Amino acid sequence: MTESKQPRSPLATRALENIDAKLAILQLWVATGIPFVRNDAGRCICNANDELELEYFPENVLAFSRWTRESAKCPFTLTQHPTISTFRSFSRSTLDTEDNKTKKTEVDVRLTEIADKAKAQLHKANPKSESTEAQSAAAQMQQLNKVLEHEIGKYREQARVAIEERNEAMALNKRQKQYHDETVAKLKEQLSTLRSRQSNVVPLNKPKTGTATSSEGEEN
């Protein structure tokens, strides 16, 4: 025998009804389009940027839980969708309970769908804005290209200077080596000359051979 679920409290029941009412409006707008902000006569009006503007819709779970009639941007929406006037705020944690897991998933799906719908509507209704975005993206890309070209030029200059410094260092090293080689060669030549002269020098205390023989003859 399975255990029966505990009956919902009146507060939980009202919260669930509130959630279902909000989901129904989102589902309707996904299917037919999000209302544009209109005047009392029902004509679409533009914002300060001369663009059509969509009626308020929640973009996340917290906004969904706080969605009430005060969120509406124009009274015309309330006349066309009177259900919104019944919306009440509820605790976000309501959707985190075990009993409302499925409902939480449905809310997440509807929020994704309504965001995609809004993006598509605005691009279609405000082609000028879309063109402006494209121009802005192109301008940003052009600016990025300039920055990259500047960086490339800077590193090329640094590479050129490094090559020049390396070549100068190599040339200096070559000159120093040549100077050292020439100095060593001169010193070797001087040493060779000195040794050659030294071999021809007779010590003063060493008697000559011819002089010694002559002295011996006189004594005899």
Rank of each mutant, 00 (worst) to 15 (best):
V107K: 02
H81E: 01
K117W: 00
V107T: 07
E130C: 04
L122C: 04
S91W: 01
D96Y: 14
A118E: 00
K146N: 15
E151A: 12
S131N: 08
N173D: 09
S136Q: 14
E157P: 00
T77I: 05
S136G: 09
E133V: 11
A115S: 15
P82F: 02
A115H: 08
P127I: 08
A162T: 06
K128T: 13
F64R: 04
T86D: 12
K101E: 10
L144W: 07
Q176A: 11
A171K: 08
K119Q: 06
P75M: 02
E113I: 02
E106G: 02
Q158C: 02
K154V: 06
T68Y: 08
K124C: 12
I163L: 03
D108S: 15
A138R: 08
K174W: 00
I152C: 03
I84H: 06
E98M: 05
W67F: 15
S71Y: 04
R110F: 13
M141C: 12
E130S: 14
E165G: 02
M170N: 12
N100A: 08
K174H: 03
V107Y: 05
D96S: 13
L62W: 10
R110W: 14
R175F: 07
K73W: 05
K119V: 13
N100K: 05
L78E: 00
Q80V: 09
S131L: 13
P127N: 04
L78C: 00
Q178V: 03
T97S: 12
Y155N: 08
G153F: 07
A115V: 14
K177V: 03
F64E: 09
K73S: 11
Q176H: 07
A134W: 10
E165A: 05
V147R: 14
R166Q: 10
Y155S: 10
F90Q: 01
P75S: 03
S85L: 09
T112C: 08
M170G: 00
L78D: 01
E70R: 13
A125F: 00
A63K: 11
I84S: 00
Q143A: 15
K146L: 14
A169N: 04
H123A: 15
L95C: 01
S93F: 05
T102P: 03
P127C: 09
K177A: 15
A169W: 02
E149T: 14
T94F: 15
L144D: 12
Q176P: 00
L148V: 15
K104V: 03
Q142E: 08
Y179H: 12
V147H: 06
I152L: 14
T68G: 04
R160D: 09
M141S: 15
D96R: 13
K177Y: 02
N173T: 07
R110E: 14
K174Q: 08
T132V: 04
L172A: 11
R66A: 08
F90Y: 05
Q135D: 15
L62I: 07
E149V: 11
F90D: 00
T97L: 07
Y179L: 14
W67R: 05
K117H: 01
R69G: 11
Q176R: 11
K174N: 05
E157R: 10
S85C: 07
K154L: 10
A63W: 03
N60A: 04
V61Q: 15
E70W: 08
R175V: 06
L95T: 02
